[in-house]
Simulated scan of single mutants.
Amino acid sequence: MKTTIFKIDGMNCDGCADSIQSFLEKESGVRMASVSFADRQARVLFDPQAVEEDHLVDVIQGRRFRVLSREPADESAR
């Protein structure tokens, strides 16, 4: 499993965050998605053998949002 944090532009409200979270959670290989409007980011736990990170970017950007950056989550901070 891998966790990546995606910085997202274009969210205007919590409803946008909820929509992105719903789209991500429907993808095969995604174990968990947590999207924050306040932080303008999505934290996604996924199986890289089942879904590519680039595909997750496409899922987000296909819904009129823009991924500004992505980085591995610091798992030691949990």
Rank of each mutant, 00 (worst) to 15 (best):
P48D: 01
D54F: 05
D39R: 13
C13Y: 12
P72H: 09
N12R: 14
S19P: 14
S28W: 12
M32Y: 14
S22N: 13
Q41E: 05
A50S: 10
A38I: 05
A38K: 13
R43D: 11
K7S: 07
S28T: 12
R31G: 15
D39G: 11
Q41H: 13
E25Q: 03
S34G: 09
G62V: 01
F37M: 01
L56W: 05
K26H: 04
V30F: 04
P72E: 06
I60F: 09
L24I: 02
S76Y: 11
D18N: 15
E25F: 06
D39A: 12
G29N: 00
F6S: 01
E71P: 10
E52D: 10
F23T: 07
L45V: 09
S69T: 01
V51Y: 05
V57N: 04
S22E: 10
E71D: 08
D18F: 15
F23L: 06
R31Q: 14
E75F: 10
D58R: 15
I5P: 02
Q61F: 03
Q41I: 14
A38S: 08
G62Q: 03
D18P: 15
L56N: 03
T3I: 09
A77T: 13
N12H: 14
Q61K: 09
Q21R: 08
K26N: 06
A77H: 12
E52V: 13
R63S: 12
A77Y: 09
F46P: 03
V35C: 00
E71Q: 06
T4A: 09
I60R: 04
L68A: 09
R70C: 08
M11F: 06
I5H: 01
S34I: 07
A42C: 00
G62D: 01
R40S: 13
D18K: 15
D18S: 15
S69H: 05
K2A: 09
V44Q: 01
V51G: 01
F65R: 05
K7G: 07
R63H: 15
D18I: 12
L56Y: 03
R31P: 15
F37R: 01
D14P: 11
F37T: 02
T3M: 13
F46V: 05
P72V: 14
G10A: 02
